[in-house]
């Protein structure tokens, strides 16, 4: 039986107060299982990123609870949340957020240096197919390559969870597919629980489940009987 990685109960996040308050999340109930690849879809402002940020320890809920295993992310002290990010979470952003003054290898080393049982930097880069570009600076890499370095950096510490916020949003189709292949490959081989935000309904076919967001709530959750391979996608 699969264990749950995340459990949220009546999770709410409100920005501001009074009549101008923005209710980004309005009572999210969600359980994410270990090893699962969950795709989050929905229009802009529907709450996907807010949920991802809260799950990743970048933001805190206004009310409700969110647990990573036994850790209450809503109430844990800042130090514990930093520790949680360091040990368990890998992030991949739309804008790669690589450090321009460090090479690909060094960007990955940033993480392996502080992780408990990281994979080797070479393995991480090999997983995303970038062994031969390890000593290049971000400015010397294409967009897709930069994103794959970001993925390598995210998974090098063998995180329990990989959170990807529109990882292909800034990429063309072919490059996007290459990046998604990397994510799927890691999900399958390492068993990393993966949450992936996308606007692209076709990409949703990659996931075990697809969570549809609308106006800060979960409208419905679809279960894909079979996951398609990345190279079979086209958009």
């Amino acid at each position: 039986m699969r264990h749950s990685v995340f459990i949220t109960r009546d999770l709410r996040r409100t920005y501001g107060d009074g009549p101008t308050a923005v209710h980004a999340l309005r009572g999210i109930e969600l359980v994410v299982d270990e090893g699962e690849l969950l795709v989050l879809v929905g229009p802009s402002g529907s709450g996907k990123s807010t949920l991802l940020n809260i799950l990743g320890g970048l933001d805190r809920p206004t009310s409700g609870t969110v647990h990573f295993r036994d850790l209450d992310l809503g109430r844990a002290p800042e130090r514990a949340v930093t520790e949680y990010r360091r040990r368990h979470i890998g992030f991949v952003f739309q804008f790669y957020n690589l450090i321009a003054s460090l090479t690909a290898r060094e960007n990955v080393e940033l993480v392996t240096d502080i992780a408990d049982e990281p994979m080797s930097v070479d393995d991480a880069l090999a997983l995303v197919g970038l062994s031969d570009r390890a000593d290049h600076f971000p400015a010397q890499l294409s967009g897709g390559e930069q994103q794959r370095v970001a993925i390598a950096r995210a998974i090098a510490k063998r995180p329990a969870v990989l959170l990807c916020d529109e990882p292909t949003g800034a990429l063309d189709v072919a490059t996007g597919i290459r990046v998604l292949e990397s994510i799927l490959h890691i999900n399958e081989t390492v068993g990393t629980t993966t949450l992936l935000i996308t606007h692209n309904t076709d990409i949703a076919r990659l996931g075990d489940r697809v969570v549809h967001f609308g106006d800060g709530t979960i409208r419905r959750i679809d279960v894909n009987a079979t996951r398609v391979a990345a190279q079979d996608l086209h958009w």
């Binding site: 990743g56 970048l58 930093t82 360091r86 040990r87 957020n97 450090i99 940033l110 993480v111």
Partner: peptide, 14 residues
């Protein structure tokens, strides 16, 4: 800013 924020996200303490 972005680099520093990235480091924070990656789990580096303040």
């Amino acid at each position: 800013q972005r680099d520093l924020a990235t480091l924070r996200v990656l789990g580096f303490a303040r």
